[in-house]
């Protein structure tokens, strides 16, 4: 059974236009999947449906055997502990230290009181330092996050998601605010998450070349629908034209017919 199944997923925010429509795909454990598409295509919305940061309107998302849309509050929290999330703007608490931010990833496993009082076990703290070391920012552990560079902050974000011991990590444009060097560092780390730890990664990207060189598989979104789904090596110019709508306004189905 695949780790993640998306069935006929549909989503709209304000009843007017559909942001996502009729999405179907499955993701196996250990896959590195990129989602590409122009801005406004619905990439962020798709990721947020997976951990139900936005409510699912139509169809279903089945993660690890559980239908995410049907969970109650407590069950949803439990499922979310298994889903890491990485953001374009890192989404750290800027005034807190690196190590505190990393440990925030453990809240899902704690009672409210334990979390509020900041009670973490020695094992958790050791794990946090281990991750910081692995990501090469151990020496910044006690610095405030707002004193770090963008690339370093994103690595804190990665550490925060990994300390959750997730089965999947959702990355929403993780390198969109970074320079090429920092981007490479981050993408390499993400790749190693999948390769070394066997954790599935779904990465929203807008750089096609990076998506092609890092991922096993690419899904192309356009206007809330899937227009490409296949191994990265099969993504060609005509697909990207279609994904980014650089040529015609024709609907995906028609274009596919034309291309055949």
């Amino acid at each position: 059974m695949p780790l993640l199944q998306i069935k006929d997923l549909g989503k709209s925010y304000n009843s007017d236009a559909k942001v996502l429509q009729g999405l179907n795909f499955e993701v196996e454990s250990g896959e590195f999947l990129s989602i590409i598409g122009p801005s406004g295509a619905g990439k962020s919305t798709l990721l947020r449906c997976i951990n139900r940061m936005v409510e699912i309107d139509e169809g279903k998302v089945v993660f690890d055997g559980q239908e995410v849309g049907k969970l109650n509050k407590k069950e949803l929290r439990k499922v979310r502990t298994n889903i890491g999330m990485i953001f374009q703007h890192y989404n750290l608490v800027p005034r807190l230290s690196v190590i505190e931010n990393v440990l925030h990833g453990r809240f899902g496993y704690k009672t409210t009181i334990q979390g509020v009082l900041g009670r973490f076990t020695e094992a958790e703290k050791e794990h946090a330092f281990f991750l910081l070391k692995k990501l090469g920012i151990e020496e910044h552990a006690y610095k405030r996050c707002d004193q770090l560079s963008g690339g370093q902050q994103q690595r804190v974000g990665i550490a925060r998601s990994l300390i959750q011991e997730p089965k999947i990590v959702l990355c929403d444009e993780p390198i969109a605010s970074l320079d090429p060097n920092a981007s490479k560092v981050i993408m390499d780390h993400l790749k190693s998450i999948t390769q070394e730890l066997g954790i599935t990664c779904i990465v929203n990207l807008h750089q096609v070349e990076i998506a092609k060189s890092y991922s096993d598989r690419i899904i192309g979104l356009n206007k809330g629908g899937i227009v490409f789904d296949g191994p990265s090596y099969r993504l060609h110019r005509n697909h990207t034209d279609q994904i980014y709508g650089t040529q015609t306004q024709a609907t995906p189905e028609i274009r596919e017919l034309i291309m055949v």
Binding site: N51, M53, L76, R77, K78, V79, R80, T81, I83, G84, M85, F87, H89, Y90, N91, L92, V93, P94, L96, H104, G105, R106, F107, G108, Y109, K110, T111, T112, G115, V116, G118, G157, R160, S161, Q164
Partner: peptide, 22 residues
């Protein structure tokens, strides 16, 4: 910033954990 709140919500943190820690 709303962003840290979003991040903690995504980790499965409870309401008061988010309030007091983010």
């Amino acid at each position: 910033s709303q962003s840290a709140v979003e991040a903690l919500r995504a980790t499965g943190a409870t309401y008061f954990q988010i309030v007091f820690k983010a």
